[in-house]
Design a protein around this nucleic acid. Structure first.
Lengths: 223, 223
DNA sequence: GTCTATATTCGGATAGAC
DNA sequence: GTCTATCCGAATATAGAC
């Protein structure tokens, strides 16, 4: 029920401690098997019984690693975002051509969703009734959003309108790719033309009011 | 398990029969209460026990109206699409200005999703593990798609590429509206500029290969 | 941390009388 | 079509020994 479901934080200080190492290994194994079960039975239908026997534990022993089923989802959520951030780290090239950098980013998003439906569901959909990411898990999402923000800014996409259109397009393409052709590239290939369309059409999406005087409604920020 | 979950079809012949009328009324009531429960507890968490007591029946009696829980979802699905088609009937004006007609359609879609999150989930998301609409329920979706197709064609949107981009945008805007601001209009207001952007950018989305000779790659179909 | 044993609750579905 | 009674299975979670 609390905002903090997780029992341990794998990124803690005492990582050399062999006790902690064994525990972390087990935790990793638990999360990995949870993903497999989710892919097989659906995310909401994960059963702690099945999960326990997959990792050679008795079901109650799992409660040493999280304090409720929602805690397990939070572990998975943090894991998924870790994968996403890692992919961004390794697969995105630095921003030389801003247009290419943005396309690259969108393609990364679609590939991420397409590669694992349940991972996509957990991160971007409202599949689990009571689930809300914990503070530190949500922080990972914020990090990812910052990557997007940087590339949007570099490509000249400013303002809430244009940003919302961008978000909507990416969300829609990823979702369509997932539900109508998981693993395929039908929507992935649309990332480039769609982004070109968006960038070319930016004037249509300029913020409505920079009313009379200066064309800098950003005075606040600059000051 | 079968493709046909529904027990009765409310659109059957003998509608004057008072027996049938009472039954249909009850069925309507059941579906209505099911929606309320879904909105309260989440779509997958509807319980037949709770549903039964809401309509003053014992839980096993519900099986006179559908033969499994998935059958209930199919009833709800058909109901949702009936609402969607009815809204299209009443709220869409005839196609004079094709551009306006398309925008109108997109706005209808976003409003539909925005107005009822669980309804949106049932129709457009993969929320229920084993659920697949029955043949005749799916037929309603096809009808709706035909409305979209007509307006796309009128507005000059042809080919899979452009159509996919359209679908992706609508899906994404509807989803974003639902998850980040249900009931609001933040994404609804983006329908117009986005569609203008799409229509202006159509040349970017022309089908890749109408290679050498004729501009009709559709020979197959025509033959 | 892991176990056994169990509590508790709830779910969907069926049998058979009326 | 509706009821009573019941089955059967499954789920999460807790208590307490080791």
């Amino acid at each position: 029920m609390t905002d903090q479901h997780r029992v341990t934080d794998p990124d803690e200080a005492s990582r050399a401690d062999p006790r902690q190492r064994r525990r972390d290994a087990r935790l990793t194994q638990i999360v990995a098997e949870a993903w497999q079960l989710a892919r097989r039975d659906g995310l909401p239908s994960i059963s702690l019984r099945h999960l326990a026997e997959r990792v050679d534990l008795r079901q109650p022993s799992l409660y040493a690693y999280f304090d409720s089923k929602l805690g397990l989802y939070d572990l998975m959520y943090a894991d998924a975002l870790g994968q996403l951030l890692a992919a961004a780290e390794t697969e995105l090239s630095p921003i030389d051509d801003p247009r290419e950098a943005l396309i690259e980013f969108v393609e990364l998003c679609i590939r991420f969703s397409s590669a694992d439906v349940v991972r996509h569901e957990l991160v971007f959909e409202r599949t689990i009734p009571g689930f809300k990411p914990s503070r530190q898990s949500h922080e990972l999402l914020v990090q990812f959003r910052n990557i997007a923000a940087a590339r949007l800014a570099a490509a000249g996409v400013h303002g809430q309108l244009a940003t919302d259109v961008f978000t909507g397009i990416v969300a829609g393409f990823a979702q369509q790719q997932v539900i109508s052709q998981p693993g395929g590239d039908r929507w992935l290939r649309l990332a480039r033309p769609a982004m070109e369309m968006l960038l070319d059409g930016l004037p249509l999406l300029s913020e409505p009011r920079r009313s009379t005087r200066a064309r800098t409604t950003r005075t606040k920020k600059r000051h």
